[in-house]
Nucleic acid binder design. Structure first.
Lengths: 339, 339
DNA sequence: GACCCTAGAGTGAACGTTCACATGATGTCA
DNA sequence: TGACATCATGTGAACGTTCACTCTAGGGTC
């Protein structure tokens, strides 16, 4: 047998109270740093807590306070490094603030992921951080309305009543990319987008499309869409170039697709960046190991995560912003070898 | 105002009971699919539940059942793609089984991460999945003992009483790598390890070290250690080669370091794989975009995650294995361009 | 008709906390 | 000395469930 037989009974606040010869409430006051406890009593209680290894049951506490110091994270795919980094940042910020994270992945095939969000609420989370999903703005609005829930969205800069959005300034980002590409003498730009773009208002696609039209004067912007994996990126790039061989620059939805595009161009015997320039989004570390290293629109995932947590806290304290709130992040183009 | 003014009062089981004209217990029986409820009553209650949008409060339920259908994940770093994939797999398995995940990162500088695990317990998790950490086996054992907690560890194949370990069969993996390298005519192998290896029993290091000695007959195996980032990998590889220029193969702790090593070799003017072979671990997707693509020891993160969840379930049902349990995963060497 | 069995439903208590209020002791001021 | 404020602590109820009982009505068996 082990040193302590672990009678599977975690000590409760009452055990502490009895051992210290006080009432539960006094112990509770010590736990919440209430001022009106005599120093000697406090010391005695703290000693008992230490001895017993007592830790307050956060569920019981949450049941009465209606605050769990926990929030939910709903992500489309944690395997996407940009989201993983954001999660990591959220986790760091949360820990700092005494919060915990319940992480869920949304089913990418579920058009209305609202059910997932509601399940999170039954777990008692104080709020939800949502990564870009198929869930429509109106669905989100009514979700917030009928649940009185704090909702922060990262990655989609839409103004939705009751929701705080934190996102890259897509228009400025698109402009920065196109300025750079035209400076490099590129004249005809194709897009490799995330397959979900036809399904909801995709700000990145719209920003790029519009900026390309304005900058290069292309009448029709070539686009291919696929789930953002390396191989899909490769195939989509090859389709793009087969349909329009004059393309001399590709902007991809993210770095993963961009890497696939590099592969595709290589397979077609095109030189990067001489024959064709390639730009990704996110700035994941692996972009630096390709040959040549990938030019990319960096997303400050840690910064955004920190801002998301801060927004969540103020939302919890002051309620959801009635008008909706949008925090745009300035673009930061990391110019490396593919342009 | 919104359609439903959301008086911030989520309906409770009592609201349902009153509206359906039954007692709470009957509603509870419907929720838990208890057989002894009259079909008509059941139908009526289900209708009210639907109408009200009632969802049972899982915290209240957990408080009495002592089962939250939630488990904790303690990871060193979610930004590591292998861990991110494992998290994703855990999440998928958990969702399938009606469970949820609370994710925490362990502070890499905290030698005894036990505090983090205890905090998870106060959140009411039914068990904890731990990624390789600095926490020592004896600490884990006494943690499990004194808390009666289910603990599954992924990535460290140590036999610890009360703990289920799921890990790559490191010895077989090392042998597979060395067989392959010697077949390719490599004679002198250097190691690029994770900086934490001196601090605890590092099975990967030990397996490689031993196998290299046995296979190549090297008297002393050159090693460099660093935190596994690309740039650290590059620098460590350069140090390794500066100290021992005869090295013709490098085995890295993971793919990220291996990519850094490729960089370092490139900087030194060495050809990969002709002058020097490089092998990584994990099999992350980005290993395929390097030039040449990286040879790597694949880790089936999804499979391991699934096994971890399964182990967790049986542990919850039957209690921790007294003896400790080790599930070794067979090695799978993905031979690509760097060897 | 007395007996037991069973299906269907309800009741009080418990889970481990905190909240709102009550209590008693001590101190302060006129 | 009385009135009142303040400090330190205690008490009952509540949070939203489930568990272990109890209760009732109806039916079958002998």
């Amino acid at each position: 047998m082990a040193p302590r037989p672990s009678d599977t009974h975690r000590p409760t606040i009452i055990d502490v109270a009895e051992l210290a010869g006080v009432s539960r409430q006094t112990v509770s006051r010590v736990l919440s740093d209430h001022p009106r406890v005599a120093p000697t009593t406090r010391a005695r209680i703290e000693e008992v807590i230490e001895d017993l290894g007592f830790r307050p049951n956060r569920m019981a506490r949450a049941l009465v306070t209606k605050t769990s110091l926990t929030f939910g994270v709903a992500s489309v795919d944690m395997r996407n490094l940009h989201f993983a980094e954001t999660c990591s940042g959220l986790q760091a910020a949360a820990r700092e603030g005494g919060y915990h994270l319940v992480v869920t992945e949304l089913d990418p095939d579920d058009d209305r992921g609202i059910g997932t969000l509601e399940t999170l609420l039954t777990l008692g989370v104080d709020g939800i951080v949502l990564f870009p999903s198929m869930v429509s703005g109106t669905d989100l609005e009514s979700f917030v309305n009928s649940n009185g829930c704090c909702l922060v969205m990262i990655g989609r800069g839409a103004k939705i009543p009751g929701v705080v959005s934190i996102a890259l300034d897509e228009l400025a980002a698109a402009q920065a990319i196109l300025n750079h590409l035209t400076e490099k003498g590129k004249r005809r730009v194709g897009l490799l987008m995330n397959e979900m773009f036809p399904r909801f208002i995709h700000t990145r696609y719209e920003a790029l499309h519009r900026t390309i039209e304005e900058t290069t004067g292309q009448s029709k912007v070539p686009v291919e869409a696929a789930r953002p994996t390396i191989d899909n990126g490769r195939q989509a790039a090859m389709r793009l170039l087969a349909a329009d061989p004059d393309i001399d620059a590709i902007v991809a939805f993210n770095d993963t697709m961009a890497m696939g595009a590099m592969r595709g161009c290589h397979d077609l015997g095109l030189r990067v960046p001489e024959d064709i320039a390639i730009v990704g989004y996110d700035g994941i570390p692996y972009g630096e190991v390709t040959l040549p290293p990938l030019t990319t629109m960096v997303q400050d995932s840690f910064g955004m995560a920190g801002a998301a947590f801060k927004a969540m806290l103020t939302c919890i304290k002051e309620g959801s912003p009635l008008e909706g709130e949008v925090h745009l992040w300035p673009p930061q183009l990391l110019i490396r070898g593919t342009t």
